[in-house]
Amino acid sequence: MDDHDDELIGRAGAGDTEAFERLVRRHLGRIVAFAGRTLGDAAAAEDVAQEVFLRLWTGASRWRPTGARLSTWLHTVALNLCRDRIAKRREAPLDDVPDPPDPAPAPEARLATQAIGASVQAALADLPEAQRVAITLCHFQGMRNQEAAEVMNVSVEALESLLARARRGLRTRLAAVAPELLGGT
C-alpha cells in the first residue's frame, strides 16, 4: 500500500487531482479520527484534516520516497496543526472554550456500555496532551512504537513513559466509574 502511496504522490505532485483524491479517500478517515481524538471536536478535526491534505497537495512535488511512510507524515502534520489549535484555545477567553467533559463518577444508569464509553472519552480528554496523543497513536491508531515516536518527535523510551503514565491516569480515573471492570472491588 505504501509503495502505491508513493506512486500516487508522484502523480499528485505532477498535478494529477485524481491521484490526489485517491490518497485523500484512503487516509482521510484515520486523520479525522486522530485529530478528533486529539482535539475532542469533530468540526475542528475536519478543518485540520483538510489543511493536512492541502499541504500534501502543495508539497507532493517535493516528496521523496526515502522510506518514510505517508501515514507518519500525515499524522505528524495533523499533530502540529492540533497543537496550534490547542495553544489558541488556551489563549482564548474562557467564554469561547467548550465545557470540558465531566470526569465525575457517573450515576448507576451510566454504567451501560454507552455510558462507559463516554466516561472513557472524558477520561481521555482529561489526560495531559502528550499522554493523550501517545495513547491515541498507539492504542487507537494502531501505530508501531517507533512510528508513533517519530510523529511525536520523541524517543521510543519517552513514548513508552508517556504511554505508561497515560494508562495509569486512565486506570485511576476509570476506577471511580467502573471499578468492577478494572478488577477492583
Partner: peptide, 12 residues
Amino acid sequence: RLDALLDAAPAP
C-alpha cells in the same frame, strides 16, 4: 481489562 475499557470509547 483496561484495554477493554479503552475499546469502549466511542469511535470518532
